[in-house]
Simulated scan of single mutants.
Amino acid sequence: MDHGEARKTKAQAVDLARELSERAVRPAHVAEGAPALSIGLAPQPDGSYALAVRYRLGLPSVRSIARKIVAEAGPRVDVRRTGRISTLADGDDPAKVRPRPPVITARALGQTGRVRPLRPGVSIAHVDVSAGTLGAFVHKDGVVHALSNYHVLSGTPQAAVGDLIVQPGPADGGRAPRDRVGALAARVDLEQGLDATVDCAIALLDDQEVDLEYPVGRITTTAVALGGEKVAKIGRTTAVTRGHVTAIELDDVVVGYGEELGEIGFDNQIEIESTGSGPFSRGGDSGSLVYREDGVALGLLFAGSESGGENGTGLTYINPIDAVLGALGVTLV
């Protein structure tokens, strides 16, 4: 299918999936009325697209819905199973202050220590959150801010503009006022039960002198993911990892946010699969900027699945970068 035909097929499949989901009997941990599976477009080697269908392991009713979608859509379907999808801050519950034991930091491959000047890929967080990743530097009204996720720089709906941001994050030993680097400046709110597109926030930095270099050099331009791109990221936990885009325009990606926010569905998301022996991301990599091999930004990393992917280490989900920048009214420095 070409892009246009694939989008039409997707729209029909999404409507059918939602209709079937409303009738499904679901376990207690799956929110009532929540979509049972995610549907998007899967790039094919010949440049065409198949229908991407993603569903959770361990849910027989969901597997049944996936089979009906496949039967309706025909042979051009890419079906994958995943575990639960959750945010990737370092900690059991990003809505609570729960720093991990020092051994977790010791095993991290990325930069978990104090870094000045600030640079992409280092540990950072709201003073009451565990730890995530500083993804990029952006301009808002001509002033440099740090870009990461809502659940990294804000954490809960109770957080407020002006709250302290520390580097490294609390899970890595960061404390205020000693490790203060700025203050929460803006965020895109997330609400339980409402669909979302982006998980993002920015912090106004105390020191405007920053290191803009990534492993591929400076990243100043963005692009829309078309599928199949070879990508990389630098994160607090797994450092530099590589992968490729396995699905685009995924709707109804249900992500767990802990007790306070519950599960939130995201539309128009991008899926990344690792091309190495390990995962593309782990807890603590939330907020990483995902970029093409030529140094063009594609998205902001925010969630991952327990399992799935070619090597079984899970799939990673990212917000389209242009949607992130537009929602916050910022541009890459």
Rank of each mutant, 00 (worst) to 15 (best):
residue 7 R to I: 14
residue 9 T to A: 13
residue 11 A to I: 10
residue 14 V to W: 04
residue 15 D to M: 05
residue 15 D to L: 13
residue 16 L to K: 13
residue 17 A to R: 06
residue 18 R to P: 06
residue 20 L to R: 11
residue 21 S to D: 14
residue 23 R to Q: 15
residue 27 P to H: 07
residue 27 P to K: 06
residue 27 P to D: 11
residue 28 A to N: 09
residue 30 V to P: 00
residue 32 E to W: 01
residue 33 G to F: 07
residue 34 A to Q: 12
residue 35 P to Y: 06
residue 36 A to V: 14
residue 39 I to Y: 03
residue 40 G to I: 05
residue 42 A to L: 04
residue 43 P to M: 04
residue 46 D to M: 05
residue 56 R to G: 11
residue 57 L to I: 11
residue 59 L to C: 04
residue 73 A to N: 08
residue 74 G to L: 01
residue 74 G to T: 12
residue 75 P to T: 10
residue 80 R to W: 01
residue 82 T to A: 00
residue 84 R to Y: 02
residue 84 R to P: 07
residue 91 G to Q: 06
residue 94 P to L: 04
residue 95 A to G: 15
residue 102 P to N: 02
residue 102 P to D: 05
residue 103 V to I: 14
residue 103 V to Y: 13
residue 112 T to V: 15
residue 114 R to W: 06
residue 116 R to N: 06
residue 117 P to C: 06
residue 118 L to Q: 08
residue 122 V to L: 10
residue 123 S to T: 09
residue 127 V to G: 00
residue 128 D to F: 11
residue 129 V to Q: 13
residue 131 A to I: 03
residue 134 L to R: 02
residue 135 G to D: 10
residue 135 G to M: 04
residue 136 A to P: 10
residue 142 G to K: 09
residue 143 V to Q: 12
residue 144 V to S: 00
residue 145 H to L: 07
residue 145 H to A: 04
residue 149 N to F: 08
residue 151 H to Q: 08
residue 162 G to E: 08
residue 163 D to V: 09
residue 163 D to F: 03
residue 168 P to M: 02
residue 173 G to A: 06
residue 173 G to D: 06
residue 173 G to H: 06
residue 176 A to Y: 13
residue 177 P to E: 05
residue 178 R to L: 14
residue 182 G to K: 07
residue 186 A to E: 15
residue 190 L to K: 06
residue 190 L to Y: 05
residue 191 E to L: 09
residue 191 E to C: 00
residue 194 L to N: 03
residue 195 D to H: 07
residue 200 C to K: 08
residue 201 A to Y: 06
residue 203 A to N: 09
residue 203 A to Y: 09
residue 206 D to E: 15
residue 210 V to Y: 04
residue 211 D to N: 15
residue 211 D to Y: 09
residue 212 L to K: 09
residue 213 E to C: 00
residue 214 Y to W: 14
residue 216 V to L: 05
residue 216 V to D: 02
residue 218 R to Y: 00
residue 218 R to A: 14
residue 222 T to W: 02
residue 224 V to H: 09
residue 230 K to Q: 15
residue 230 K to L: 12
residue 230 K to F: 10
residue 233 K to G: 09
residue 241 T to W: 02
residue 245 V to M: 01
residue 245 V to W: 00
residue 249 E to G: 03
residue 253 V to W: 05
residue 255 V to R: 03
residue 258 G to P: 12
residue 258 G to S: 03
residue 261 L to G: 11
residue 263 E to L: 01
residue 265 G to H: 01
residue 269 Q to T: 15
residue 272 I to H: 03
residue 275 T to Y: 01
residue 281 S to R: 04
residue 282 R to S: 14
residue 282 R to Y: 00
residue 283 G to C: 02
residue 285 D to P: 12
residue 285 D to W: 11
residue 287 G to K: 03
residue 290 V to N: 04
residue 290 V to I: 14
residue 291 Y to Q: 03
residue 294 D to E: 15
residue 298 L to W: 04
residue 298 L to D: 10
residue 302 F to S: 10
residue 304 G to P: 12
residue 306 E to R: 12
residue 307 S to K: 10
residue 307 S to L: 08
residue 308 G to L: 06
residue 310 E to C: 00
residue 311 N to G: 01
residue 311 N to F: 07
residue 314 G to S: 09
residue 315 L to K: 07
residue 319 N to D: 15
residue 327 A to V: 11
residue 327 A to L: 03
residue 329 G to W: 07
residue 330 V to Q: 02
